[in-house]
Write a protein that binds this DNA or RNA. Structure first.
Lengths: 235, 235
DNA sequence: CCTGGGATGTTTACGTCGTATACGTACATA
DNA sequence: TATGTACGTATACGACGTAAACATCCCAGG
């Protein structure tokens, strides 16, 4: 094969990657895109390297390891959330804290809807990290929510309880709601989507009869309704 | 090394495992125990085999693969739930549907509390499976909850909405509540548990000041309160 | 212009993982 | 006692995460 004199590698550094040099933002964007397209199991260091036209080890300059890369996916999600949140920021000052909380929750829901296969990472990686070590974008989100609650007049204990309820509901809702999107979007017949055949009608009669209704998504309205109910209780 | 004539393997079949032959229940119990002790990342086919005094490939007679093994962990959790649920079954007939729903949710919470490192599997594996293919014990749990809701007089749509709210809340609550138990139980000072140092007090003032309250667990009361609020709304 | 040093990506290698395949062995049934 | 089948082993392969050493590029200071 023809190569430069001096027996260097076949590719010049200026040709590296598909568009010049690597950086953390490009790495995370490529990882997010790969996971969106092919799922979490497709994300490996070698594969992501190939996606960027680079060897696997090159990625270690921008993430200390695979776990950090997964945390980076969560970070990317929250950065996208902030981008969606920013435009209405000035008008937000006028609306009350409750409406603003709804706005944030809905925006989070929408971002997750755009990246359903990343959602499991919220439960597995984000919550696994000890709060202060979470990505800055995540901490800023926490700060926004907590500020709204305290400015609403809640004391420390109630703020904490309301924050936990907010987080649990939002996380649980997107988890149960967005999963079906990943499963098998091809099959249109809800009966087969659920695999209702072979489910014994005598042992599980109620499940079998309500199953078609269960696949119907709750949508943003369901999220808002539950959030309202919880805020009534905890705030 | 001394072995039987005929150049067979060194160990006789009657010595296999630590207590005789393998079966699915023993495999799942050993897997659950291993995960409880050392976490999900310690669960590999070879390691679990070693734990049972057996080669890795032997496990494939009782679970088609690693994924099925993880699903089996979820199954084991729900079997334990049923065991905790059974004793009060007759007295349950007298109590109203709402109290019974609380009883089930609380029992689920307690089971998860006993196996916190398995909880992430509920979000990643259980929800990923298309309902009808979930383990029988899981389906029976769904059936119990759905039956309570329909017997309470809810129509199909409201039952479905209430079921989704129940599932999302329970799953989200145990996810956010039981994770800190895994992190670093050694450090007693809540400030250091959170790693509050190095968290900029000027950029995240509210988070920093309410962080100590955030580590305080919500406990079963928080679960019950939120469930009540949601049932008020959805049922 | 030259030159040296830090930043960036590559190469090679090791141990572990999930699992396909082929094989031996023990036990139940006849 | 013979035999088929359920059970566990042996061996092997490719993919994975990543440590260590190396090659190359780019740019500041002479």
């Amino acid at each position: 094969m023809a190569r430069e004199p001096g027996s260097g590698p076949a590719r010049r550094a200026s040709d590296r990657g598909r568009y010049g040099r690597l950086n953390r933002e490009r790495v995370l964007a490529a990882a997010l895109d790969l996971v969106d397209r092919e799922g979490l199991s497709a994300l490996s260091m070698r594969r992501l390297g190939a996606e960027l036209g680079v060897e696997a080890m090159a990625l270690y300059r921008y993430a200390p390891g695979k776990d950090a890369l997964l945390d980076g996916l969560v970070e990317a999600l929250y950065l996208e959330l902030e981008a969606h949140l920013a435009p209405a920021q000035d008008s937000a000052a006028e609306s009350d804290w409750r409406a603003e909380l709804h706005r944030i929750a809905l925006a989070t829901y929408r971002v997750c809807l755009g990246h359903p296969r990343v959602v499991p990472l919220l439960a597995t990686r984000m919550l696994a990290v000890p709060l202060a070590q979470r990505p800055p974008a995540v901490l800023r989100d926490h700060e926004r929510v907590l500020t709204l609650l305290t400015e609403a007049g809640l004391d420390e204990a109630r703020t904490s309880a309301a924050f936990r309820a907010y987080t649990a509901w939002l996380l649980g809702y997107v988890s149960v709601e967005l999963r079906p999107l990943v499963d098998n979007p091809d099959e249109t017949d809800p009966a087969f989507r659920l695999g209702l055949h072979r489910m014994s009608a005598q042992e599980l009669p109620t499940l079998r009869s309500t199953a078609p209704a269960l696949v119907e998504p709750g949508g943003p309205e369901g999220l808002a309704a539950g959030l309202d109910a919880l805020l009534d209780r905890f705030a």
